[in-house]
Amino acid sequence: MRRFSWFNATSLTLGFAFLYLPMVILIIYSFNASKLVTVWAGFSTKWYGELMQNEAFLDAAWVTIKVAVISSTIATALGTMAAIVMVRSGRFLGRTLFSGMIYAPLVMPEVITGLSLLLLFIGIGLDRGVLTIVLAHTTFSMCYVSVVVSSRLVSFDQSLEEAALDLGCSPFQAFFLVTLPIIAPAVISGWLLAFTLSLDDLVIASFTSGPSATTLPMKIWSSVRLGVSPEINALSTIMIGIVTIGVITASLVSKSTVARQQREERAAERLSAG
């Protein structure tokens, strides 16, 4: 193997510095005592304190979490169903349209998705608020879930499910006892993806929400337009922290799941060999 060259080391260092430096600066300056965001005036956590006092932000955070949990859960159920349909159902009437509708939202500009859903909600006279944001988020994130889950389903050995059916499981039981546990990592990462997409969305939420519901990104948006503020830095730091912990935990869990599965497989091989 060739030695890891200077060129590669430099490009990796510079590349990751570019990716991470802006966020590191943001985190450092969230602990700045000064109101002036670009002048360092000593360490302080007062902006976190002020954030906790800010009713508007707390309300928006609550709305955001509510929307994200509900919409990602529905999206995971619908997306998993759609993935099973795509991978297993063979031909049926309107299949092309179905797969088109699954893939189109992935490339659709958010402004268009938002605009079209808003026009629908107004057309049918639905009051805009938490419900409409949930409907909108569910619709686009279920497509992401279905792409993630169907890539797992394709490599899934269907004979396992057939064996369960032969041994007297109902199709329903076979799905919940055999298929679901095996595709669970994909379903969980689909849920996480849907959750973060919902947490992060500004454009679609702005179109589909009414005066009664403001999400955190919308709140951040309206204050950021006025410029950089230490409070937003503090809020961003909290959000970056939550995501980082979540992603690292998820990857550790999936790593230990894979390791356990490999152990079990080896044990099974030994048993059958012995």
């Binding site: 966020m23 973060t196 951040i220 937003i232 961003s236 980082t244």
Partner: peptide, 16 residues
């Protein structure tokens, strides 16, 4: 990892 962090925050970080 940056892909999972808020898009809005990542854009915002460049304003400062």
């Amino acid at each position: 990892l940056p892909f999972w962090t808020s898009f809005l925050i990542r854009v915002y970080s460049w304003m400062g």
